[in-house]
Design a protein around this nucleic acid. Structure first.
Length: 424
RNA sequence: AGAGGAGUGGCAGAGUGGUCGAAUGCACUGGUCUUGAAAACCAGCGUACCGCGAGGUACCGGGGGUUCGAAUCCCUCCUCCUCUGCCA
């Protein structure tokens, strides 16, 4: 979330940024926040005064008791009644105001940076670059949902039986290829200087609040009510929460973490006609990279992360394009996002396989991830993350693009990891 | 899972109802001394919010309560330790 003081200091810029996101009535929302914050300050001030009076009275009563002036003490006690009631009332008010302010702030998305194009939806995203040639498939080429049946490598029916829709079972070479990709992605990240993390895949409420899945996106996560834990939708959540309420020092920065995890998404209401096969799942695997940096370095780092993901796609020999998301398509918490899409030859569709974002201080503010500046004052760091990569759609494109009449050809780089060079 | 114990400042550790934001030691910062360093000595040393400032308020694992007043008493949750049980 944004800092109120930032909103105050950069009111014009904030409103401009919200307009770029097609946020409705931004100046109204901002004015209301500032008003609420003013009310918060004045209420806080009143309460502090009342509490100060109470503290003085309490000290006096203590003194009187010590001196044995019972009667006077009793009288002084009576005099505090009104003050006490008033302080309770003000404290309740303050709590409500703070809550109201927080809710309002949660409703304000991050401010897009200058390089984010204007636009209302995915058609306005800027195609930054395109790499590789779309595959020239043989006659009778199939979409991946048929290929996986033909070669018996992924079984949706079994998943239906065991769990339900969107939980496929990977079998034989399908399972091995999956494992190979995870290892390949992790190894590439290690070469890039990342530290591998194996995080818990269940998180508590505090972590969900920290990275912003809660309270607003509660319905998108699987919730274990007995223990009040949530299945992670991405490794970003536990990995970023490592640094919740942490003040990092120079030696620890930049933080560069990579983690593999299964990801769980309820995808409530997201199932449409053209969501088939591996295109959208309730459980899938992903390798995620996370960085935490000084503010002045974060865009250089964003660039570095983009290059890392590009190199993965190029090594896998997949045709892809990179999008600079427009204001209307930008994620709520992001200041700038690049999406990577691979071309899936038989579906003839671009599939999003990675999203690399700079959140600037938006996440850090909620999480309280900070460093001490040269004056010893705590300042918020910038957080960034990106998929490197999400597996199912990579697998979909790989199966479709690499199919031949003899079988599916495994890209060179994966062969040492999976131990075979074709499926079929 | 049951029984018992414990959670205090960067660390160690005192404090069981009253000027306690919290003794003391270590660490850290500045100074004196020294050619330099160490030692010794002196001083400083938490965070957040409000205020131009003086200053005020809050914070002793989290939340709630009792009280004029809570680190201290009560309730509840979390975490850690010991013992018992169970288990990959």
């Amino acid at each position: 979330m944004l800092l109120v003081n930032n909103i105050r200091d950069n009111k014009v810029k904030v409103i401009e940024g919200l307009k770029k996101r097609n946020f409705e009535n931004p100046s109204e929302a901002i004015d209301r926040i500032i008003e609420t914050d003013d009310l918060r300050k004045s209420t806080q001030g009143q309460l502090d005064q009342i509490l100060a009076d109470g503290n003085v009275a309490a000290r006096r009563i203590g003194q009187l008791m010590k001196e044995g002036k019972r009667k006077e003490a009793e009288e002084a006690k009576k005099a505090t009644q009104e003050n006490k009631a008033k302080s309770k009332e003000l404290a309740d008010q303050l709590k409500e105001i703070e809550n109201d302010l927080r809710i309002q702030l949660y409703d304000i998305p991050n401010i897009p940076n200058d390089k984010v194009p204007a636009g209302v939806g995915e058609n306005d995203n800027e195609v930054v670059m395109e790499y590789g040639d779309k595959p020239d498939l043989h006659k009778g080429a199939m979409p991946h949902w048929d290929l996986i049946v033909k070669y018996d490598i992924i079984d949706f029916e079994l998943g239906n039986k065991i769990t339900g829709a969107g939980f496929p079972v990977y079998k034989g070479k399908g399972a091995r290829l999956q494992r190979a990709m995870i290892n390949f992605f992790l190894e590439e990240a290690l070469k890039g200087g990342y530290t591998e993390i194996q995080p818990p895949i269940l998180i508590n409420e505090a972590s969900g609040l920290g990275t912003g899945q809660l309270p607003d996106k509660e319905g998108q996560m699987y919730h274990m009510t007995t223990d009040n834990l949530y299945a992670i939708p991405t490794a970003e959540v536990p990995i970023t929460n490592i640094y919740r309420d942490v003040i990092l020092d120079d030696g620890q920065l930049p933080v560069k973490n990579v983690g593999y995890s299964p990801c769980f998404r309820r995808e409530a209401g997201a199932w449409g006609a053209n969501v088939r096969g591996l295109n959208r799942l309730h459980q899938f695997d992903k390798v995620e990279i996370v960085q935490i940096t000084y503010p002045e370095e974060s865009y250089k780092v964003l660039d570095e992360m983009v290059q890392h993901v590009q190199s993965l796609l190029e090594k896998l020999e997949l045709p892809y394009r990179m999008l600079n998301l427009c204001g209307g398509d930008l994620g709520f918490t992001s200041a700038q996002t690049f999406d990577m899409e691979v071309f899936s030859g038989a579906q003839k569709k671009w599939l999003e396989v990675s999203s690399i974002s700079n959140f600037e201080t938006y996440q850090a503010n909620r999480l309280k991830v900070r460093y001490k500046d040269e004056n010893g004052k705590s300042q918020l760091l910038h957080t960034l993350n990106g998929s490197a990569l999400a597996l199912p759609r990579i697998l979909a494109a790989l199966l479709e693009n690499n199919q031949t009449e003899e079988g599916i050809v495994i890209p060179e780089v994966l062969r040492p990891y999976c131990g075979f060079d074709s499926i079929g």
